[in-house]
Write a protein that binds this DNA or RNA. Structure first.
Length: 479
RNA sequence: CCGGGUGUGGCGCAGAUUGGUAGCGCGCUUGAAUGGGGUUCAAGAGGCCGCAGGUUCAACUCCUGUCACUCGGACCA
């Protein structure tokens, strides 16, 4: 058994040996994505695309249940439009790609490939919002955007990436604020219920917030290596963009007013979070709710009469219950086991001559490799329960890890000691001053991940300057 | 953007120091057996060495440039 294990893991670099390489190995070997001929851009392969489609459908139905509508805007933004809001353009200018020619002809005004679509939405909203009766506008767009990143990594940071961006307009600041929080909660619920990833909800500091936003909210997840991954964000804009773009409506009191705006997004980066939260040295582990394949059937001894027939009949029968595939390739059973573990299929069903004789099958969980024998009479009832068990197992494991890798620091020396030696989150009090935030980055190499909604007092004073503390901040290294 | 590394059949590597136009493992194809943790045997196919220049009678090998990937840093939703 030990030998077998050894053989299986040699395909992937062990996590403890080189986490970055482990991550890349999984992306490539699980066939989620591969590199393309285009700098910094990846090809998301069918398996990765199927995962994204499930993520997308799940999120999309959550958005629609709350009244959001999908829309599709241009992928180009004229330079003048991008420049309309000062903070925004300053934030994005260094990383936009420019289109300067149409065919052979030089453009009178260059176009940027959208890095995000606030400006396009605002331009459109200025045309269609005239009355308080036009509000709220709850729009969402599924698209790809381009940011000219210096360093790229599959899913985590790529030049082009896919996402959704919700952009809403509201009559009052309160309503917009509510929307901002509502959508952050949608993301958090999605992560926990569908991806089995526990997240920390909170607000970004001034330094870390989105270019042009008044407030940025975030959900932060902890990866296997203790680093934080921002998994979704929701921004409150106030009426800053509305003023910059001249979006006005006639209010209930017949006065001209500016609407209040939000935007929120989740990207294919979340696939990186799935990999680095649930994956292990045998490969990927897919959360059942979004797994492209929830159950793979591996028939044993397919040359024996009746085996393949029984297995494929079972496969057809189970289609109504789970997303199921049968692997009837010529590879050996052991090869298939390893292959589907690599791809993270939550459940594996083995069926061979002995099972058929006994009207049973063998089911193995991906998350803990637990092997059970299930009667074919009750397989349909058992499968959803097993998928749920895998989900819960993944969530609890991730939560336990996050808890065990979350520390508190009351002094600067304590904090530096932790930052240097203990990967993970550090809870420490902060005075609210940006110079302290900068100092922590310089001295300890960590940044503020968020100001969690759930506040408690770790100590009285700022961990950095010692002045009276304003709030608790979760610090850490980030992707 | 700065510094380090890598680029040779589909994948992983050797060959470069001592230039003489490629070799191994896996995979792939075909056939047979096997089949409950990457099964075995046999026979095959497949590369002009990232790209562009240069030196040389001769370049995978030396020189220059360039591109891509990668690690670290800086930057960054």
């Amino acid at each position: 058994m030990a030998d077998n294990n050894k053989k299986m893991v040699e395909a992937i670099t062990p996590m403890d040996e080189d986490f970055a390489k482990w991550y890349t190995d999984i992306v490539l070997k699980a066939e989620l994505a591969c590199y393309s001929g285009v700098r910094g851009c990846m090809i998301i392969r069918p398996y990765g695309t199927a995962l994204w489609e499930n993520i997308r459908n799940d999120l999309d139905s959550r958005f629609k249940a709350l009244g959001h509508e999908n829309i599709m805007l241009p992928m180009f933004i004229p330079e003048s439009l991008l420049q309309r809001e000062k903070d925004h353009v300053e934030g994005f200018a260094p990383e936009v790609a420019w289109v300067t020619h149409g065919g052979e002809e030089k453009l009178a005004e260059r176009l940027c490939v959208r890095p995000t679509s606030e400006t396009l939405f605002c331009d459109h909203y200025a045309e269609i919002i005239h009355s308080y009766r036009d509000l709220p506008k709850l729009y969402n767009q599924w698209c790809s955007v381009v940011r000219w990143e210096k360093t790229t990594r599959p899913f985590l940071r790529t030049t082009e990436f896919f996402w959704q961006e919700g952009h809403t307009m509201h009559e009052t600041a309160d309503e917009a604020m509510e929307e901002t929080e509502r959508m952050l909660n949608v993301y958090a619920d999605f992560c926990e219920q569908s991806l089995a990833i526990p997240v920390l909800k909170g607000r970004k500091t001034e330094k870390e917030k989105f270019a042009g936003a008044l407030a940025t909210y975030t959900i932060e997840a902890m990866m296997h290596d203790g680093k934080a991954l921002q998994s979704g964000t929701s921004h409150y804009f106030g009426d800053g963009f509305a003023r910059a773009f001249g979006i006005q409506f006639t209010g209930r009191d017949n006065t001209l007013q500016y609407p209040f705006q939000t935007s929120w997004g989740m990207s294919t980066r979340i696939i990186g979070a799935i990999i680095m939260t649930h994956g292990d040295d045998n490969g990927l582990v897919m959360p059942p709710a979004v797994a492209p394949v929830q159950l793979v059937i591996v028939p044993i001894a397919t040359h024996k009469p009746g085996v393949l027939e029984a297995a494929s009949a079972l496969c057809d029968d189970l289609k109504s219950v789970v997303r199921v595939r049968i692997d009837d390739s010529d590879n050996s059973p052991g090869w298939k086991f390893a292959e589907h573990e690599m791809k993270g299929v939550p459940l594996r069903l083995e069926i061979g001559p002995r099972d058929i004789q006994n009207n049973q099958c063998v089911i193995v969980r991906r998350d803990n490799r637990e092997k059970i024998i299930v009667s074919l009479n009750e397989i349909k009832e058992k499968l959803p329960l097993l998928l749920k068990a895998v989900h819960d197992g993944l969530y609890q494991k991730a939560l336990a890890r996050r808890n065990s890798m979350t520390y508190t620091a009351e002094s600067m020396s304590e904090l530096i000691e932790l930052a240097d030696n203990k990967p993970g989150f550090i809870k420490a009090m902060w005075c609210g001053d940006e110079t302290c935030e900068t100092e922590l980055k310089e001295k300890a190499g960590i940044t503020s991940r968020c100001i969690p909604f759930e506040q408690h007092e770790v100590s009285k004073n700022c961990v950095c300057c010692g002045k009276p503390a304003k709030e608790l901040v979760v610090w850490g290294k980030a992707y």
